[in-house]
Write a protein that binds this DNA or RNA. Structure first.
Length: 848
RNA sequence: GCGGACGUGGCGGAAUGGUAGACGCAGGGGACUUAAAAUCCCUUGAGCUCAGCUCGUGCGGGUUCGAGUCCCGCCGUCCGCACCA
């Protein structure tokens, strides 16, 4: 420390942040060089929808990715860390309808705003690769890929049902249907059938499922969700023969054909043809079917809803015993669109079936032994679904469940009344949207030639700009000119497809386009080979199924048609937690409804919180995800303006593990701001000339550098932050030495990925260029191990004393020292030591 | 209902089966200051007969020399969902 150095002034993010952001821009510091000889690393965060403002959740997401990207650069990697915009979607059309703006103009100005916001946070992004899915350069290439998939037979058309709003004359998304009514018109929504485009994701069900097992760096939770979504089940599909007056067979599918001798009824869906036919001349059946359609459709509602059945009076014959007849029920828990829309019930071994059987007084026969229980009369209301030997099942008796399944399937196939079948829950991906603001589907409908793909040389099919939103319906469909074209095959007047693609298509390949952006094709396969798979993908858990499954599918589809080699696009996935905040509310005295207040309107007091406007208390509600409706939001821009980018970045990384929720607090950000300044003061004490050694601090420094690196690589940012605090405190306390200067320098470099502006400002004094180009500090492995250790001394497992000894002290010596301790002797109280456990360098446990 | 995750001070959270509570926030006391801010120092799981001891990681058992961590059974909270046959 040099005494004459002036008292360091405060670090001023208001000037420093923008200054360094400009320098990085000018140096193109974060531009990924595809020709680099360095090892490559592709770090990607899920790109945002340009809603208009950056949300604090984005800040958390992008800060995590940024720390990793900057760290990887410091470790010598050529890093690809791009950013773009998932720019098509309904909010732009809603804005157009509400505010009379053009979706394109609205979206592009949102992008400009949000880009400026991201820049103010100092993210190390390669902006030269920025893309927006709403631009023809992007969606035109998407159209080309769609045509490739069509040519490969992976795209087809079929009829499918949509939600139709009869007042607005428009198709509604599920989220636009509220309690069965259109969200704008309030009209009762109707089901309508339209010809729609589909992608054959079911062709990939098996490989998408198999592929999950290779994704060992994905959260278990996400893999489980995808596995359940794909939903592979193996079982028997077979037919029950009818008993007059029933005329046709009833086809059923079961994953438990082994329990066929325990069958006591057959249940069909309300939509089943037999049920529909019956409704025509039996009013009671019609009433029951109508009743089935009431109520919610979510799993939780359906699962907990009462099981209802209607006895049709019809009978079918048991396939394994011609003399055995089973009653046919219409049941509210059978779904027409899964399997065959009919099941057989084996109450003893299926909970739903036993609920149903007990309610309607149907037989419940045990066919799988539950331990020693083999009695055919099954007692109680709880089904036995565990393993066991088959009983009361004729030729199956004595077999275990898997063997019995195989035996029944073999019998069915031999006798020709059924066959083993794999059924998937996954359905083909419907990608048609009857909307303007999306990628036009590149097809033309010709009365002569049928559906004709737009020739690639005519791509992109560009959205018309002159559209209006003042009348309901699809603007593309009612545009006076756009859809009228000549057939590319026969030249006759024809009509463009006016459906656009689901925006999930746009996000299914953007990570490929980031790797290279040629004008004449979607991507350069060589660039894909170099950069893909994404080494670390980071985003919200809300995309655990759809986006991630579609992106995996799209990549595999491109691999199948030879466009890419990679099959799994994201080697490692991380799903971050939400940013939460407490809510402030009062009950409206008139109707008892809660009224929410924003954090800006509220002041925390010693007792709780009060409204600034009237000084009276407000209730502090639960800590929940920030949402506009609960008003518990904070604007990242305001935080950056007040505390600077580094403080908010530091907050995003501190305390909470990144996969868990992070509670925002004013006190927390204040603490981060103070730490930024504290580091600044410490950096100001750097003295290149300092001499003398401080072995303990040197050791602590190297241990911290090593540990922080490991923490960052494991995305354990909160732990890395804690270690930086520790080294900071130790360095502050240490007297001047060469090692102290080294510690300060190391701290600066450790902090650089997290607080890059502060780090640049302090590093500038060193005259070594940009910290953005600096290397991670070297670690001396010799300094990672302590030469002195603290050994715990326990008596019967309870801590009684600690010993500070040289590392590697022999067991006998540790035992002798432990027995010599007064505290130990007191705890032993003369008892004889019967056993001694010694864990070298850790503990001695004396058992008396 | 099913699937998954989680449960540790006032709060966020640390802890390869080996000293529970690192680190941060908040609180208490003090220094500096005319004062404030900023900064620095000390302190903070609970209890007791307080140089010490006892209890303590949702609850009840178990395994172990030793359990926050492993096993069994409960309770609670959160997330996801598609009646999956």
């Amino acid at each position: 420390m040099t005494p004459e150095r002036p008292e360091p002034i405060r670090f001023d993010p208001a000037t420093a942040d923008t200054r360094w952001q400009q320098v990085w821009d000018e140096h193109q510091s974060f531009r990924a060089d595809v020709t680099s000889a360095k090892p490559r690393s592709y770090v990607l965060e899920m790109f945002p929808y340009p809603s208009g403002r950056i949300h604090i959740g984005h800040v958390r997401n992008y800060t995590m990715g940024d720390v990793l990207a900057r760290y990887k650069r410091m470790r010598g990697f050529e890093v690809l860390h791009p950013m773009g915009w998932d720019a098509f979607g309904m909010p732009a059309e809603n804005a157009a309808m509400e505010k009379g703006v053009h979706p394109g103009g609205w979206t592009r100005s949102n992008i400009a705003n949000m880009k400026a916001q991201l820049k103010r946070l100092g993210f190390a992004l390669d902006w030269s690769r920025e893309l927006a899915t709403c631009e023809p350069e992007y969606y035109g290439q998407e159209q080309a890929l769609f045509l490739d998939l069509y040519a490969a037979g992976l795209v087809y058309r079929r009829e499918s049902t949509v939600n139709w709003d009869p007042v607005d004359m428009t198709v509604l998304a599920n989220e636009q249907v509220i309690d069965g009514r259109g969200w704008r018109s309030g009209a009762l929504v109707e089901k309508r059938k339209l010809n729609q485009w589909f992608l054959k994701i079911t062709d990939f069900a098996d490989e998408l499922l198999e592929g999950l097992s290779t994704l060992d760096k994905w959260p278990e939770k996400v893999r489980t969700m995808q596995e359940n979504w794909i939903g592979k089940s193996q079982g028997l599909q077979f037919r029950f023969k009818p008993v007059a007056p029933l005329e046709e067979d009833i086809a059923v599918y079961s994953t438990r054909p082994d329990t066929l001798f325990g069958a006591s009824f057959v249940a069909i869906a309300a939509d089943h043809p037999i049920a529909q036919a019956m409704a025509k001349d039996t009013p009671e059946a019609g009433d029951f079917i109508a009743k089935c359609k009431q109520g919610g459709t979510t799993a939780a509602e359906l699962e907990t809803a009462e099981k209802l059945g209607f006895d049709t009076g019809l009978k079918v014959v048991h396939p394994l015993d011609e003399t055995w007849q089973l009653p046919v029920y219409i049941a509210n828990f059978v779904l027409m669109d899964y399997g065959t829309g009919a099941v057989f019930g084996c109450p003893a071994h299926d909970q739903r079936d036993i609920d149903f059987a007990r309610k309607y007084g149907l037989p419940v026969t045990r066919v799988v032994a539950d331990g020693g229980k083999t009695n055919p009369v099954f007692e109680g209301g709880e089904a036995y679904t565990g393993p066991g030997r088959l009983v009361n099942s004729r030729f199956l008796d004595g077999l275990d469940v898997p063997a019995a399944k195989a035996a029944v399937i073999a019998q069915a196939e031999a006798e020709g009344w059924g066959e083993g079948k794999t059924v998937w829950r996954l359905r083909d991906w419907g990608v048609s949207r009857q909307r303007y603001w999306g990628t036009p589907i590149p097809f033309i409908h010709c009365e002569v030639c049928g559906v004709v793909p737009v020739p690639k040389k005519h791509l992109p099919v560009v959205l018309p700009e002159d559209v209006t939103f003042d009348v309901p319906g699809n603007p593309l469909d009612r545009h006076p000119l756009w859809k009228h074209v000549d057939c590319p095959q026969c030249g006759h007047a024809a009509r463009r497809e006016t459906d656009t693609l689901d925006t999930f298509v746009d996000s299914s390949w953007y990570f490929l386009r980031f790797a290279s952006q040629p004008d004449d094709r979607p991507f350069d396969p060589e660039a894909i080979k170099r950069w893909l798979p994404v080494e670390q993908y980071i985003g919200g858990i809300e995309h655990a199924i759809l986006h991630l499954l579609y992106a995996r599918f799209w990549t595999r589809a491109l691999a199948r048609i030879g466009k890419v080699e990679v099959t799994e696009p994201f080697a490692s996935l991380f799903t971050q937690g939400m940013v939460t905040h407490e809510t402030y509310e009062r009950k409206n005295p008139e109707n008892g409804q809660p009224v929410f207040f924003s954090p800006a309107e509220v002041e925390r007091t010693a007792e709780g919180a009060a409204l600034k406007a009237d000084g009276a208390p407000v209730e502090i509600g639960r800590v929940i995800k920030m949402s506009k409706s609960k008003k518990n939001v904070v604007d990242p821009d305001e935080i950056v303006a007040k505390y600077g980018a580094d403080a908010i970045r530091w907050f995003m990384l501190s305390d909470s593990p990144p996969e868990r929720d992070l509670p925002w607090s004013e006190a927390g950000i204040e603490g981060c701001w103070r730490f930024v300044q504290r580091l600044w003061r410490l950096f100001g004490q750097y003295d290149a000339e300092a001499i003398g050694t401080d072995a303990a601090l040197a050791r602590k420094t190297h241990q911290t550098v090593h540990a922080v690196a490991q923490d960052i690589e494991a995305l354990g940012f909160n732990k890395a932050v804690a270690r930086i605090y520790e080294l900071t405190a130790a360095t502050e306390k240490a007297g001047p030495s060469a090692n102290r200067s080294a510690a300060i320098r190391a701290l600066l470099l450790l902090a650089a990925p997290m607080m890059p502006h502060l780090a640049e400002e302090a590093f500038a004094v060193f005259g070594e260029g940009l910290v953005a180009d600096a290397a991670w500090p070297e670690v001396d492995p010799a300094l990672l191990v302590d030469d002195e250790v603290t050994v715990a001394v326990q008596v019967k497992g309870k801590l009684r004393d600690t010993l500070t000894v040289a590392k590697g002290t022999p067991r006998e010596e540790l035992e002798r020292l432990a027995l010599a301790s007064d505290k130990v002797q007191r705890a032993l109280d003369g008892a004889e030591v019967r056993k001694v456990i010694v864990v070298p360098d850790r503990l001695v446990n004396l058992v008396a």
